[in-house]
C-alpha cells in the first residue's frame, strides 16, 4: 500500500473545488490520468502517482471503508467524502454520517502512518 500517495491524491483533489467536480464527474478517468502522470510526477506538489490497482479502484468506487482500512488519514478522508457526497451528490448530512460511519466502524483504528 502507498498510504503516502493515497493521502496526496486526496489532498490534491480536495485542495481545489474544480478538481473535486472533475473527480466527481468521472472518477475512473480522473484516477487513470493521475496514475498516467506518475512517471512525470514532481514533488512538490505531485500531480500524479503510482497507486496500486486496489487503491485506484477504491477511489473510483468511492469505497470509504476500504480507503479507511488501507490507512488514509481519517481527517482527509472525511472531508473528501463530504465534498463528494454531501456537497455534490446532495446527500443529507445525517444520511451521510450514518453511511460513512457504518463503512469505517468495522475497521477500528487502522495504522495511518505513512
Amino acid at each position: 500500500m502507498s498510504r503516502y500517495l493515497m493521502n496526496r491524491f486526496i489532498s490534491y483533489v480536495d485542495d481545489d473545488g474544480g478538481r473535486v467536480v472533475e473527480f466527481h464527474t468521472d472518477p475512473a478517468g480522473y484516477v487513470e490520468r493521475w496514475r498516467a502522470r506518475a512517471s512525470a510526477a514532481r514533488v512538490p506538489p505531485p500531480d500524479g502517482g503510482a497507486l496500486t490497482n486496489a487503491e485506484a479502484q477504491a477511489f473510483v468506487d468511492r469505497d470509504y471503508g476500504s480507503l479507511y482500512a488501507m490507512g488514509v488519514h481519517p481527517y482527509l478522508l472525511l472531508h473528501f467524502a463530504r465534498a463528494l457526497d454531501v456537497v455534490l451528490d446532495g446527500t443529507s448530512w445525517s444520511e451521510f454520517v450514518a453511511r460513512y460511519r457504518a463503512q469505517v466502524e468495522p475497521h477500528g483504528f487502522p495504522d495511518f502512518r505513512t
Binding site: 479507511y68 488519514h73 481519517p74 481527517y75 482527509l76 478522508l77 472525511l78 472531508h79 454520517v97 460511519r101 469505517v104 466502524e105 475497521h107 477500528g108 483504528f109
Partner: peptide, 9 residues
C-alpha cells in the same frame, strides 16, 4: 476527538 473515524459524530 475523533474526526473521520468510528468515534466521530
Amino acid at each position: 476527538t475523533d474526526i473521520g473515524g468510528p468515534k466521530g459524530f
